[in-house]
Write a protein that binds this DNA or RNA. Structure first.
Length: 439
RNA sequence: GGAGAGGUGGCCGAGUGGCCGAAGGCAGCAGUUUGCUAAACUGCCGUAGGGGGAAACUUCUACCGAGGGUUCAAAUCCCUCCCUCUCCGCCA
């Protein structure tokens, strides 16, 4: 096989052999999520690559032998011109084939990187959110005067949210938090991080908020979704859309010791999203912003444990809402509603009284080996039997939680008839004892 | 931003065109010796992929930061990029 490190900067999602051997099965399974992949072209390219690769290897073997001959002759002070001429023409043939091969590899890699992950067998079929399956609810909606006020109205009236000035200094889809609002946001971040680090066993990380192209490719945002990202003009840096990107990439190109797994990280970061294509949707309030805060949970496990870990991780995110006494439900996303890289996703949806609806506040996914292959994150049991294969880890992550949406849920669910908002018990000591936000 | 020095196996470190997948050392593994530990000695000891073999193994290809180029032949020469370090400037 030709050395794949030649194209190492372009990671590979599907192992090409696995893809070739299981193309029809993969094709069928991906049909569930409506993936548009040029399968026949892909198949042809894989075959071409295989043929050309073996040609190159054969020629190169000849060339190596010939070169050794030249070396021997030269050392013996004998003329070597004939061999050199012969080798030159082999060299030229190799170059020609390699040029062709390079083109094929580039196309193949690019196509490959655009194939989404396979849904897990337990994922329900379906095209869109209508086919998602509710699996549990916790708590119950608060009893409120009808109609309940929206968090936007409440926040502006309380003087803790300012969308007009945010529009002035930045634009649409930004928010300014002031006074008790800013402090509540900060209290939530601390509450979440503290719970995850002290009760759930996560290690806190504060990563860069700008990352390079390789990192974005590894977790699956690139190459397909560049239009969703903010990118710097003069440098090839992107603003992170989620802490998943820098934190998962902590271990890119690493081989982990099996005894170190599972590894669990939690990170607070702001998140930046272009929200291209969502014009006119959720234009009011804190729901959909270009910049928002999030506390993320990230885990690396051996493959056998990743689904167990997904349940754990989801429960950890739920614990935040339970601590705040916010009613929510958990749904399993159907194949068509899942993100590109996910094999299985649970969304946690919090109750929003003003909308009389559940709204996503966390998304917890198992990516299985998808990101690990793109990022080349493996593990090995170094203490164990000899010759043990290094294999790809499974990666997972989930919001634990989206902070702005949590603040929004608190404002709405804890609103009082006079327009003030009670602070949930658990947050009060993070708020310096404040029990209620009022005008 | 300016000037310079570097990136070689788990680690240290040699290697300026051929017999180099890479000396030597450390660490690790197996063994000999041994009252135990230690020391000494012997052997093994990178990764990925293809072919052959039931297997131990064997053979081919690639890999000395990444990518391209020169050459019959590149760790070694040339170009581009990335990263690290030192000095200067600037800054929190």
């Amino acid at each position: 096989m030709l050395d794949s490190s030649r194209f190492q900067e372009l990671p590979t999602m599907y192992d090409l052999r696995a893809l070739r051997d299981n193309l029809d099965a993969i094709r069928e399974q991906l049909g569930l999520r409506g993936a548009d992949v040029p399968w026949d072209r892909l198949r042809a390219l894989i075959e071409q690559r295989r043929t050309l690769t073996s040609q190159v290897e054969q020629l190169r073997s000849e060339l190596n032998k010939g070169s050794e001959e030249v070396a021997t002759l030269k050392r013996a002070k004998q003329p070597a011109d004939a061999a050199m001429v012969a080798m030159k023409s082999i060299g030229e043939r190799i170059k020609r084939i390699e040029d062709e091969l390079r083109g094929i590899e580039e196309t193949l890699t690019d196509l490959n990187l655009r194939i989404p992950n396979l849904p897990h067998a337990s994922v329900p079929a379906g095209k869109d959110a209508d086919s998602n399956v509710e699996i549990r609810r916790w708590g119950s909606p608060p009893i409120l005067p009808i109609p309940a006020k929206s968090h936007g109205d409440l926040g502006e009236a309380l003087g803790i949210l300012d969308f007009d000035r945010a529009a002035k200094i930045a634009g649409a889809r930004f928010a300014v938090l002031t006074g008790a609002g800013a402090r509540l946001e900060r209290a939530l971040i601390n509450y979440m991080l503290d719970l995850h680090t002290t009760q759930h066993g996560y290690r806190e990380v504060l990563p860069p908020f700008l990352v390079n192209r390789s990192s974005m490719t590894a977790t699956g945002q690139l190459p397909k979704f560049e239009e969703d990202l903010f990118r710097l003009r003069d440098e090839d840096y992107f603003l992170i859309p989620t802490a998943e990107v820098p934190v998962t990439n902590l271990h890119r190109n690493e081989t982990l010791n099996e005894s170190a797994l599972p590894i669990r990280y939690t990170a607070y970061t702001p998140c930046f999203r272009r929200e291209a294509g969502s014009y006119g949707k959720d234009t009011k309030g804190l729901i959909r912003l270009h910049q928002f805060n999030k506390v993320e949970l990230v885990a690396f496990t051996i493959p056998e444990q990743s689904y167990e870990e997904l349940e754990r991780l989801t429960n950890h995110a739920e614990a935040i809402l339970q601590g705040l006494g916010l009613h929510y439900r958990v749904v399993t996303l159907c194949a068509g509603d899942m993100g590109f890289s996910a094999a299985k996703t649970y969304d946690i949806e919090v109750w929003l009284p003003s909308q009389n609806h559940y709204r996503e506040i966390s998304s917890c996914s198992n990516f299985e080996g998808f990101q690990a292959r793109r990022a080349s994150i493996r593990y090995k049991d170094t203490g164990g039997k000899k010759g043990q294969k290094t294999e790809f880890v499974h990666t997972l992550n989930g919001s634990g939680l989206a902070v702005g949406r949590t603040l929004m849920a608190i404002l709405e669910n804890y609103q009082q008839p006079d327009g003030s908002v009670t602070i949930p018990e658990r947050l009060r000591h993070y708020m310096g004892g404040v029990e209620r936000i009022k005008k």
